[in-house]
Design a protein around this nucleic acid. Structure first.
Lengths: 202, 202
DNA sequence: TCGGTAAGTCAACGCACATTGACATGTGTC
DNA sequence: GACACATGTCAATGTGCGTTGACTTACCGA
């Protein structure tokens, strides 16, 4: 309601007119809104409001909605946390996180939803393939790091993505025994994926 | 003379006035359009055109867009083949199918894309939760059929969905050693899910 | 044959939204 | 201080779309 209260957006740089900062603010707001609402339901006016600026500036700095979207999409491709996880605790950490809907609002989840929504936008769908490659497969492959890491990275990525989707759909934490069994199952599954010599031939 | 009265062609000739048939046609077109374009980008006018009828009939028969969507969503979740799979060969069958992009029938692909698009739209996601419960988790739970089937059905569903996404993204068959390792990994993973005694407590 | 009703059509309304160009204001330069 | 350009604001326009109610037509039974 009161836009006046939000006017101050940066205490360190009191300079009012700053094209670069405004552009960055728009991009940041776009990332949030596109991730939260998807391409269609994210309104430029809301994004502009989130960046505390006028809609027309979006046109000036990005050209249009679609251009803003693709740029926000690119900006969302930071390497996934997967690469930094501890191999011994990783499985259980992921399992618990999935069960409890932890960190749902973190940049990680946000950019994943962004990613998933990309598949639903015909214009940006081709980007998804590249994005998955860069964000999931490559880090996981490097992380696994053994001979057959390529194929195993695919499976691990698939499972991880599936868990993210499941959590996204479920949208609330698990509880009680169901939570425990869920965690145990996921932990066992992921642990098996991390072991390099698991592959039983035949 | 009564033979003539029975003459009915529902292929090329203009459809007779038939509320039930029209309703069904709308629903069918809705499934296609919602799956292809998602909730927001699917226009009622296009759906009506797909059903060769007027937009107003959608209101008459379904009440509105959202109601049409929920009905189309339900109609898209026919019981999955999962329920009919053989427990002993299921894991490897799925693994091979995923690796080779064995062509799933149109309806299956369509309903899966429907699912993905629904999951990524905040408006429709809650609806999906219910639908998943009824049409996906419940059959798997029954199929697994033991005490903790609830939680394990979730995990299995998540993995299955993840594999579908991975295949959708990859969009081409795997080959050579990568294919073999992939199949082995997936088989091992799914096999573990099917075994009722696997739950190792932690 | 005829009338009532279900089935289908049509045009218009209103809303939400992206887009656009004209306008205002601040900021650095001379 | 005055000018020019960059930055930001405002209102208007057009469009796509869901929704709606009044209108027309086909069907079927009396």
């Amino acid at each position: 309601m009161n836009h006046i209260a939000v006017l101050r957006r940066d205490s360190a740089a009191p300079r009012r007119r700053d094209a670069e900062a405004t552009r960055a603010a728009i991009l940041e707001a776009a990332k949030v809104h596109f991730a939260r609402s998807g391409y269609d339901r994210a309104a430029l006016r809301d994004i502009a409001a989130g960046a505390s600026c006028d809609v027309a500036l979006i046109k000036r700095y990005f050209g249009g909605k679609e251009a803003l979207f693709t740029e926000a999409l690119k900006a969302s491709f930071h390497p996934d946390r997967l690469g930094t996880w501890d191999r011994t605790t990783f499985a259980r950490d992921v399992a618990i996180e999935m069960a409890d809907n932890a960190h749902v609002d973190e940049a990680n989840t946000q950019s994943f939803q962004f990613l998933l929504r990309t598949a639903t936008s015909p214009t940006t769908a081709p980007l998804l393939n590249v994005a998955i490659q860069e964000r999931f497969l490559a880090p996981i492959r490097d992380w696994l790091g053994d001979a057959d890491a390529d194929a195993r990275a695919r499976v691990l990525a698939a499972i991880y993505i599936g868990l993210l989707v499941e959590r996204l759909i479920r949208n609330q934490p698990l509880e009680g025994r169901e939570r425990e069994v869920f965690i145990n199952q996921v932990t066992a599954t992921l642990d098996a994926m991390v072991q390099p010599e698991v592959t039983r031939r035949g």
